[in-house]
């Protein structure tokens, strides 16, 4: 079961929701947490994981044996990213443009191209004091593409029926966010009651509809009265699972890297409700799937 916490706009509280939801989920059963915001991972600041292991990961790029290259340009023709080029009778590889499709390897008639590697960064794991596992990625400084590393982090997900995987997504609605949200069983959207928040939420909802991922909203820093997110959710028929109130105390707790569900009874109750509702929704969806 993969529950991905996403938002569209940055800074709405994805990580706050993800780590607190994981803490509640860990009390009910098996859970693992994944931080796919590999450009700026921060779940570990809350989780403070112990027994950390780290592995370096890389992606395939073409490695050319110039002696075998006959400058036929087949590799250049198939590459959609200008990663391999013939310029003035020389072959040039731009490693950071390569998307690792291996097309050039396949079309090369002389076998001049073999598999090289570009370092992506690291995948790390550790365990929280509550006992759940956190896996996160740290992108190599200078690496321009995050989706390949996000995929490596997602490779660590064990998608089992009785194991809840909570995934903290990167902000935005471009490739990093979509790569993270793809294959999720459920998306929890953390919304903020601002025009920017609504705009980016709308983009994410449109993306999720295309991906076919069921979704619900939690409003963070919510005002007491109904706001623009309530109106939007009603119009789009998306359920609002909970509202985390706008509170100075909550902000202080988060700034210290503490868990809201362990420090504020009021917010603990909200997260328990959110978790319960998601669990019921996922189980319902899963049952429907079995009947089909």
């Amino acid at each position: 079961m993969i529950i991905t916490v996403a938002s569209g706009k940055g800074g709405t509280g994805k990580t706050t929701v993800a780590v607190n939801l994981a803490t509640i989920a860990a009390e009910k059963g098996s859970v693992e947490l994944f931080d796919c915001d590999v450009e700026e991972p921060n779940a570990h600041l809350f989780v403070k994981p112990q027994n950390i292991t780290k592995k370096e990961v890389s992606t395939m790029i073409p490695s050319v044996d110039i002696a075998l290259c006959n400058l036929c340009q087949e590799c250049e023709k198939i590459c959609r990213f200008s990663a391999i080029n013939i310029v003035a009778k020389k072959i040039m590889v731009f490693a950071d443009m390569c998307h690792s499709c291996k097309g050039c390897l396949m079309v090369c008639p002389t076998g001049a191209i073999s598999e090289g590697a570009r370092q992506l960064g690291s995948v790390l794991t550790g365990y929280s004091k509550q006992g759940f596992k956190l896996t996160w990625g740290e992108l190599r400084v200078g690496e321009a593409m995050s989706p390949p590393l996000i995929k490596k982090v997602k490779d660590e997900i064990n998608n089992l029926y009785n194991l809840i995987s909570i995934v903290d997504a990167p902000p935005g609605t471009s490739c990093p966010a979509i790569t993270t949200l793809r294959d999720s069983d459920f998306a929890l959207l953390v919304a903020e009651e601002t025009p920017f928040g609504l705009n980016d939420l709308t983009l994410t909802v449109e993306g999720l509809k295309k991906l076919g991922v069921p979704m619900a909203i939690v409003i963070n820093r919510a005002e007491e009265s109904k706001g623009i997110i309530d109106d939007y959710a009603e119009h789009e028929n998306i359920e609002i699972l909970g509202k985390i109130p706008f509170s100075k105390e909550a902000a202080k707790i988060c700034s210290k890297g503490l868990f809201l569900v362990e420090e504020m009874a009021e917010i603990r109750a909200i997260f328990q409700k959110i978790y319960q509702k998601i669990y019921c929704k996922i189980v319902k969806t899963e049952n429907k799937g079995e009947i089909k």
Binding site: F81, S82, A83, N85, V87, A88, F94, M97
Partner: peptide, 13 residues
């Protein structure tokens, strides 16, 4: 989306 400089470079070359 990307690689415009490489392509333009090839055009000019």
């Amino acid at each position: 989306p990307q690689g415009a400089g490489i392509q333009a470079g090839k055009t000019v070359v």
